[in-house]
Amino acid sequence: MRFDIITLFPELFAPFLASGVTRRAYASDQVAVRLWNPRDHADGNYRRVDDRPFGGGPGMVMMIEPLVRCLAAIRADRAALAEPTPAPVVLFSPIGEVLRHDGVARWAEGPGAILLCGRYEGIDQRFIDTHVDAQISLGDFVLSGGEIAALALLDAVTRLQPGVLNDAGSHQLDSFNPALDGLLDCPHYTRPEHWEPGPDQAPVPVPEVLMSGHHAHIERWRREQSLRITAQHRPELIQAARAAGRLSRSDEAVLARLG
């Protein structure tokens, strides 16, 4: 799997690619990442990549020609590796599909993509119309550039690759995963068994069921907590799970008790 990232700030990616559990995938090229700066494909001594928008208005717009040349260089580099099909070009944009778990899972099963990180007021629409295959949004807010969104997609996709996480099955119990029926994950606890918040405050214990060693009781508690948290914070996920037939009679009984 290979991701080519078009960015005016490739230095933002260096610490991310060398840190955390996913770094092993990048170091081994299990998930290959190539960084491309449009300035390297711009004209003139100043390597200009932006200009004022036609029609006036604030800010600057990324120019089409450096982006076209940069994309051509990426295509040539991929073709040299006998890429079977051209990689899709992905732009992070407010009009894109909001990124959710099922979308991440689709990208995780593919060969990768070319990720375009916009800056300034945006990108010349002619490049988008001609070359962009998909647009993705992280939500209803605006970032100063597409780099953070690219990092989010890259991390989410990489951690789903085989062997990246220490426990191969741990991501299957993440929030939103089909293995949890799309619900939120339950609370988690570790040492100490009794935490003392401070003087004159009662110790806060770990829930007793988690110390019982009774696996069936523990799994039931975790499911009930998942239902409780989801109903409290993301009730639309309960509705979606119910509509998909993923809730059992015992699940519905728990929800009924919760009111």
Rank of each mutant, 00 (worst) to 15 (best):
D77R: 13
D29G: 10
V49K: 08
A72I: 02
L227V: 07
L71I: 06
M63L: 15
E83C: 10
I114L: 12
R257D: 14
R257V: 00
S28M: 08
G96H: 08
Y189V: 04
H101L: 10
R34W: 02
T85D: 07
L116H: 05
R75S: 06
A241M: 07
H101K: 06
I238G: 03
L227E: 12
L91T: 00
V68P: 00
R242Q: 15
L173T: 12
L35G: 09
L12K: 00
F141Q: 05
W195D: 04
P15Q: 11
G139N: 04
R106D: 13
P86T: 04
I114S: 07
V104Q: 02
L237D: 06
C70K: 05
L153Q: 02
P205G: 13
D155I: 13
E121K: 11
F13I: 01
F9S: 02
S170M: 03
P86F: 05
E97G: 04
R220T: 11
Y189E: 06
D102R: 12
A113V: 08
G259L: 03
A256E: 14
D124M: 09
F141Y: 15
R48Y: 01
S175F: 06
D133P: 07
V254P: 05
T130S: 14
L153K: 06
E121V: 06
G96Y: 07
E224W: 00
P86K: 05
A32M: 03
S93N: 08
G59W: 05
D102C: 02
G110W: 11
P111W: 00
V254D: 05
H171D: 11
Q201L: 15
W107S: 03
D167H: 13
A113Q: 12
A243K: 12
A27C: 01
P162D: 11
D40Q: 15
R242C: 03
R75H: 09
A202Q: 15
G96D: 10
G110I: 10
G139Y: 09
M211H: 12
V142L: 10
V157K: 01
L237W: 10
H215V: 03
F13G: 03
R75V: 07
I136L: 15
V104G: 03
G163N: 04
